[in-house]
């Protein structure tokens, strides 16, 4: 997405945002809302512990059917665009990990049967490291990694 397009996207969406704010309250009950957010995984300081927290196993098989799109050099570690997609079938999870972060697990996307195995977001990276994508497909874990050089760290500011 070019900068120009993003501008248009932002402008055009302001109206939608206002509606959203109106609907903000009352959708979630305040308690028991985070039952599925894995504290052990997100607080883990090592990748195997994070994967164990999510899936109960840290065994992954390297797969070239996973594509990670991320910059080779990120000028600003606070905003590193990452896109993960895969040709694997029966994908239930896509996990994004920044290998050198204090807590490496960044995001766990739980896909539905309707999902196309594609997610894009922006992440923070403390320093130069691999971005690791772990995909759960057909009950097995597959992984791929891509090195991203960070010139200004995104944690600690």
């Amino acid at each position: 997405m070019t900068d120009m397009k993003r501008r248009l996207f932002l402008k055009g969406s302001v109206a939608v945002g206002a509606v959203g704010a109106g609907l903000a309250s009352g959708l979630f009950t305040p308690r028991a809302v985070l039952a599925d957010w894995s504290e052990s995984a997100f607080h883990a300081t090592k990748i195997p512990a994070a994967l164990n927290g999510l899936f109960g196993t840290d065994t992954t098989e390297v797969s070239d059917a996973i594509q990670i799109k991320a910059p080779d050099i990120a000028e600003n570690g606070a905003v590193v665009p990452v896109t993960v997609k895969t040709d694997l079938e029966d994908v239930s999870h896509i996990v994004i990990i920044a290998a050198a972060n204090a807590t490496p697990l960044v995001a766990d996307f739980e896909l539905s049967e309707l999902s196309v195995p594609f997610v894009a977001t922006r992440i923070k990276m403390g320093k130069t490291a691999d971005v690791v994508a772990v995909v759960k497909a057909g009950g097995k874990l597959y992984s791929a990694r891509k090195a991203v050089k960070v010139t200004i760290g995104g944690c600690g500011g």
Binding site: A78, V79, V80, T103, D108, F109, E110, L111, S115
Partner: peptide, 25 residues
């Protein structure tokens, strides 16, 4: 009314998060 994606995030998702995804249908 059908859930198409659930994302669990840690603090390492950038400020003012961007999320893109696709679904069939």
């Amino acid at each position: 009314g059908r859930t198409v994606l659930t994302a669990y995030w840690g603090g390492a998702v950038s400020k003012d998060p961007y999320l893109s995804f696709k679904f069939k249908g």
